[in-house]
Amino acid sequence: MSIAADRAATFGSGGSEPYAHALRREGRLTLVRDDAEGAERGRYDLGRWMAAADDVDRALLAGESGPVLDIGCGPGRMVEAAVEQGFVTLGVDVSRAAVKVARRAGLPVLAHSVFERLPREGHWGTALLLDGNIGIGGDPFALLLRCHELLGRRGTLIVEVQPDDDVDDTFSATVVDDHGRASEAFPWAEVGSVALVRHAEAAGFALDQTWRVDGRAFCRLLRRR
C-alpha cells in the first residue's frame, strides 16, 4: 500500500472546496503549482466532465473487456458510457460531491480512494485513468502498481497522458475556481507517454498502443504478469 493512501488532501478538496462548488455550477478550475514557480498547470472545464461522454470517450471502450473500473470517475460520464455499452461497471472517487452527482444520476459509484479495498480486486477487465488521473496521489508508479493489483490476468489499463510526451513531473498543487476559492495543497503528477511507459513497465505492464485525438493523448497498457 502506497503512502498515497494516507494522504487526506486530494484534488480540489479542503480550504474553500472549489471542486465541490464547481460541480454545483459547472464552472472552471485552474490547477496551480504550489511552489516557487507558482505556475498554472492546467484548466479544467467542469462542463465537459458533467456532460455525457463524447465520441472520443466512448471509443476508448470499444473492443475492451469488462468489468470496467473508472478510477477518479468524477460525476460519472465514463461510468454512464460503460453502462450504456453493456459493461458491468464501477466508478470510484474520493470527492463526495462528485459521487453525489453520479449517484443522483443512478450510476454505480463508490466514495473510495483507489488505494482502499475495492470490490472485484484482481478481477477487473479494464481500468480507466482519464482526465489527468494518472496524477492521483503524486506517485504514478505507486498508482500503476495499485492498478496492476486490481486488474485480472488479461486486464487492460487506459491512461490519458499529457500531450507533451516527455513530461514527468510530481509536485504539490492547489485548485482555484472562477471566484478565487482555493483548495488545500495536494500531491499531483503529470506524465507524458515516454515516462508512463517507463513507470508502467516497472509496475508490470506492457505498452500496447498510443494515440492522439482531438488534442488528447492516450496509452493502452496490458497487464503483463
Rank of each mutant, 00 (worst) to 15 (best):
residue 1 M to W: 06
residue 1 M to Y: 09
residue 2 S to W: 12
residue 2 S to M: 07
residue 8 A to F: 00
residue 9 A to T: 03
residue 10 T to G: 05
residue 10 T to L: 05
residue 13 S to W: 00
residue 15 G to K: 07
residue 20 A to P: 04
residue 21 H to G: 00
residue 27 G to L: 10
residue 28 R to W: 13
residue 28 R to D: 06
residue 29 L to W: 06
residue 30 T to W: 01
residue 32 V to C: 12
residue 37 E to G: 12
residue 41 R to P: 00
residue 44 Y to D: 03
residue 47 G to K: 15
residue 48 R to S: 11
residue 50 M to A: 09
residue 53 A to P: 08
residue 54 D to M: 10
residue 58 R to H: 08
residue 60 L to Q: 05
residue 60 L to W: 09
residue 63 G to W: 11
residue 67 P to T: 06
residue 69 L to K: 01
residue 70 D to P: 02
residue 73 C to K: 01
residue 73 C to Q: 02
residue 74 G to P: 06
residue 75 P to D: 03
residue 76 G to R: 00
residue 78 M to H: 13
residue 78 M to N: 09
residue 79 V to Q: 05
residue 80 E to R: 08
residue 82 A to H: 02
residue 82 A to I: 03
residue 83 V to I: 11
residue 85 Q to A: 15
residue 86 G to H: 02
residue 87 F to C: 04
residue 88 V to A: 15
residue 88 V to G: 13
residue 88 V to D: 14
residue 89 T to G: 06
residue 90 L to K: 00
residue 91 G to P: 01
residue 92 V to L: 04
residue 92 V to R: 03
residue 94 V to C: 10
residue 94 V to L: 09
residue 94 V to W: 01
residue 96 R to S: 15
residue 97 A to G: 04
residue 98 A to L: 10
residue 100 K to T: 13
residue 101 V to W: 12
residue 102 A to Q: 02
residue 103 R to C: 02
residue 103 R to A: 03
residue 105 A to F: 04
residue 105 A to H: 08
residue 105 A to I: 01
residue 107 L to H: 06
residue 107 L to S: 04
residue 108 P to Q: 04
residue 110 L to N: 05
residue 110 L to E: 09
residue 112 H to R: 12
residue 115 F to C: 01
residue 116 E to Y: 00
residue 116 E to F: 00
residue 117 R to D: 15
residue 120 R to G: 03
residue 121 E to G: 02
residue 122 G to A: 02
residue 122 G to I: 13
residue 124 W to L: 05
residue 124 W to M: 08
residue 124 W to D: 14
residue 125 G to Q: 05
residue 128 L to C: 11
residue 128 L to M: 08
residue 129 L to E: 05
residue 134 I to W: 11
residue 134 I to N: 02
residue 135 G to H: 09
residue 135 G to Q: 10
residue 136 I to D: 03
residue 136 I to T: 10
residue 136 I to E: 02
residue 137 G to N: 10
residue 139 D to W: 15
residue 140 P to M: 10
residue 141 F to N: 00
residue 142 A to C: 08
residue 146 R to C: 04
residue 146 R to Y: 03
residue 147 C to N: 04
residue 147 C to H: 07
residue 150 L to F: 07
residue 150 L to N: 07
residue 151 L to T: 13
residue 151 L to S: 04
residue 152 G to A: 07
residue 152 G to H: 09
residue 158 I to M: 10
residue 160 E to H: 09
residue 161 V to P: 02
residue 162 Q to H: 15
residue 163 P to K: 14
residue 166 D to L: 15
residue 166 D to R: 15
residue 167 V to L: 15
residue 167 V to G: 01
residue 168 D to M: 09
residue 172 S to G: 09
residue 175 V to D: 05
residue 176 V to Q: 13
residue 178 D to E: 15
residue 180 G to D: 06
residue 183 S to C: 07
residue 184 E to S: 15
residue 184 E to F: 05
residue 184 E to L: 06
residue 186 F to S: 10
residue 189 A to R: 12
residue 197 V to N: 01
residue 197 V to T: 14
residue 199 H to S: 02
residue 199 H to Y: 15
residue 201 E to H: 05
residue 207 L to H: 03
residue 207 L to C: 12
residue 207 L to I: 11
residue 209 Q to F: 03
residue 209 Q to T: 14
residue 209 Q to A: 14
residue 211 W to K: 06
residue 211 W to D: 12
residue 215 G to W: 06
residue 217 A to L: 04
residue 218 F to I: 03
residue 222 L to S: 14
residue 223 R to L: 13
